[in-house]
Design a protein around this nucleic acid. Structure first.
Lengths: 351, 351
DNA sequence: AGGTACTGTGGGAGCGCTCCCACAAGTGAT
DNA sequence: ATCACTTGTGGGAGCGCTCCCACAGTACCT
């Protein structure tokens, strides 16, 4: 078939039209069956399904996308170079959650790295072409222009860690404040008196919140504020080492350290060892993330667990809702959602 | 515009037609400019490009895919659970090469895991719908039905390690035979006499070829064959430990071990240490892959480097050629290509 | 002068869907 | 019987492109 003007087509995949002919119904009816519309009689549905099976019909995604103006795919945008993506268990946990939640859907996930300028430009093109129905944003820094670009293009998006308390995008986060608090309360409960904190990068909102939790826990326990016990890190092992050295020289009598990440705790541990401090006898150590590092450290590291996989799942939920909400012209008063999931302290022998 | 029957569209993205009107040319001409056809005069091209820039025109991928019957995207199919994907540096290196080579293109890469049955079924649907122009297959086992499915659907595909010497798909591989050989020759050159080999999974063709290289190197050096020195592993650390234990009990006097992967070498090292054998003094150890593990082992591990990133790049080259070759009705006598890249022994202190 | 060839261009037809309008047939209240 | 719905269905129009045919214009032979 295919009129005289038509080009030769590959493999002759069956079309809706052909399925309709086979089932003895109209095109519209087949479409309804394929898309699970309830407005089809039971017998017709059965006939169509039989025809679909017999012909091995699979809908043409491009045609559907063109007609319906949707792509049925979403992007997970990682504004980091690939190396970090593989190095940090955070991303793989997140991806697992996202994948799991998505497997119930017909949605396709695209993994997009936007670490370099070049990749950023590509991504911008990609989004401008509306090649995805929605975007999942992870690990975004406070000054990243990406969220605004998404807002401008009116592309539904969910962000994994809000950029600030005033985050405009729908977001999913873990309770960093509570996590910081629980780490410190745990140390206080173990009788520690002089508790230092190696912070994460302070342009990351979550890191700030952990500091807030640390401060409040100390205050509520009647400790007086002492900023000498606070030293900024940058989430790296090297940063952990540097911060630990600084802290020890400034406050040689500290008896506990709460590190803003397991990786930094690993760095701190090295310095403590080198300076002959025993863990936990002389100095108790608590990390954050409960990653593999924590379990394999010597001694095993007490750490604050974030439900990262769960966060991934929730992000998908929210994003799909957001996409669905936006289909009818625009009911636009969907309240912005900020979901916060609880953290959990996992006590091990380092504290 | 958009006739009375039209639905309201999102954001009013400009179309080809609008660009054409603006530039004062026909639709076909704009299409030609967009697609880089040479049959356009310089002045017209400039006018169209100006109009494109002014309107911020970005082609609609779905429309293009529908009309041209191509998707401009390819899939990297990983027939493994995600966990292994993140655990093994092999994949991230490969992905880096693939990404790099693809960044010169307009092609989009999809990362698809097909570890579980469920994911397999999804993938089958995906391929049946021809949602990608081509497929990159990595880490495929000998009995995997995936390659045949791709052949059946006539989807261009390139495989990263051939399944056998008679691989029908276009393939890219590293010289496993030469790699195995060079490891053994290196050990012989260091004066080792009793060289054992912990193999990889023998249903992986590359692992077999390493064994062949091991055997031939020994034979050519005048050693007599001794299968007691050969013990199968499975590429895991645990497998490395088991194999090493078996080997030590069977041949307590061995003085060198060639492991089919760095991870297995790490397992073997643990056992050697536990049994009081010094590396390299008592037993020399050589791994395969030259991964991060090799560099960080104590002592640093001599290992055979595979150019994995390069393999990724070559795979893309071959796949793109294959896709292009298949566009005209079918010139079908493109000879199957089996590309083999050289390996390189990286000597460190473990041997 | 006529033929032949090429270059650049416009626009019709068609890709395979979804959306929606129109309408037949059935159901129940008046 | 009439009217007002409801349910199920068919098919036109249109999504925004690419492909290709037709044709004007120019150039270069006979």
């Amino acid at each position: 078939m295919a009129g005289h003007g038509g080009r030769s087509r590959s493999g002759g995949r069956p079309t809706l039209e052909e399925v309709a002919a086979r089932a003895g119904v109209g095109r519209g009816t087949v479409s309804r069956v394929i898309n699970g519309s309830p407005r089809v009689s039971e017998s017709t549905r059965a006939a169509v399904e039989a025809a679909v099976a017999e012909l091995g019909y699979v809908p043409n995604t491009a045609a559907r996308a063109l007609a319906a103006n949707r792509t049925d795919s979403i992007a997970l945008v990682v504004p980091e170079p690939e190396t970090r993506f593989f190095a940090e268990p955070y991303f793989s946990d997140m991806l697992r959650g996202v994948g799991a939640e998505l497997s119930d859907t017909e949605m396709q996930l695209l993994l997009i790295f936007a670490g370099s300028d070049r990749e950023r430009r590509r991504l911008a093109q990609y989004l401008a072409a509306h090649r995805v129905d929605g975007v999942l944003l992870v690990s975004v820094h406070a000054d990243d222009p990406l969220p605004d670009m998404l807002a401008q293009l009116e592309i539904p998006a969910v962000i994994s860690g809000p950029r600030s308390a005033a985050e405009t995008l729908t977001s999913v986060d873990s309770d960093n404040y509570g996590g910081g608090r629980s780490a410190v309360e745990h140390l206080i409960g173990r009788g520690r008196r002089k508790i230092a904190h190696i912070t994460g990068r302070l342009d990351v909102y979550g890191a700030q919140r952990r500091v807030d939790g640390y401060r409040d826990a100390l205050r509520d326990a009647g400790h007086k504020a002492d900023d000498d016990l606070l030293e900024p890190g940058d989430f790296t092992e090297e940063g952990g080492r540097r911060a630990m050295e600084t802290l020890l020289s400034r406050c040689p009598d500290l008896d506990a350290v709460f590190a803003g990440s397991d990786v930094m705790a690993a760095g701190a541990r090295q310095i403590l060892r080198k300076q002959g401090r025993r863990i936990p006898d002389d100095v108790a150590l608590v990390g954050y993330d409960d990653s593999a590092i924590a379990r394999h450290m010597d001694p095993p590291l007490t750490s604050v667990r974030q439900p990262i996989e769960e966060m991934g799942r929730r992000m998908i939920d929210l994003l799909i809702t957001e996409i669905a909400d936006r289909r009818p012209p625009a009911s636009h008063d969907v309240e912005r959602r900020q979901m916060v999931l609880a953290t959990e302290l996992v006590a091990r022998t380092s504290s």
